[in-house]
């Protein structure tokens, strides 16, 4: 099969990525996570399955976690995108990062950026999720190394720390 790349539809976008405004022209079929990784060098979001099942590509768009492989870069025009790099730099993941480190909640690290961002959204929405809720909320993120136990431990500890900090 030959592909006529002259036909490749391209779209101009202006997108905030980790606080910086970026103007670009992207192929319409380029996924958001590919653009972030391959064009902007933000390789903290990973590409696993590319059909929505593994969660390794999780990024935050306009304040909500989503699958970077299921959104096109063209659709990010006018959006506010935060990747793991931006979230870590902001300090908002510090407690979770510390808990992941202490509980050995990562081995190869492939799933970790998605786990951290997903767990952070849960902790922002629920003050006191138990292990059951943590497992439910992380069910969309695959980890091929840890067996999940230590990840649930880490999120549970971070949830408890957050609660104590908020004085309850």
């Amino acid at each position: 099969m030959t592909v006529d790349f002259a036909q490749e539809a391209r779209v101009r976008i202006e997108t905030r990525v980790n606080g910086r405004t970026i103007r670009a022209e992207v192929p319409a079929r380029l996924s958001l996570v590919e653009w972030l990784r391959d064009e902007l060098g933000l390789t903290g979001s990973h590409v696993g399955c590319e059909h929505g099942v593994c969660g390794a590509c999780t990024i935050v768009v306009d304040g909500s976690c989503l699958r970077g492989c299921l959104m096109f870069a063209a659709q990010a025009d006018g959006c506010d995108v935060e990747t793991i790099e931006g979230a870590v730099a902001s300090g908002r993941l510090a407690a979770l990062q510390e808990a992941f480190y202490r509980h050995a909640a990562l081995q190869c690290g492939f799933c970790t950026s998605g786990m951290l961002l997903t767990a952070a959204e849960l902790l922002a929405r629920e003050r006191n999720p138990g292990r059951q809720r943590i497992r439910e909320e992380l069910s969309g993120n695959y980890c091929r190394c840890t067996g999940y136990q230590s990840i649930v431990d880490a999120v549970e500890v971070a949830a408890r720390a957050q609660q104590e900090e908020n004085g309850s």
Partner: peptide, 12 residues
């Protein structure tokens, strides 16, 4: 609705 896929998918 909580049984529809996962949070990141339901957000979109």
């Amino acid at each position: 609705i909580p049984h529809v896929a996962h949070r990141g998918i339901r957000n979109r």
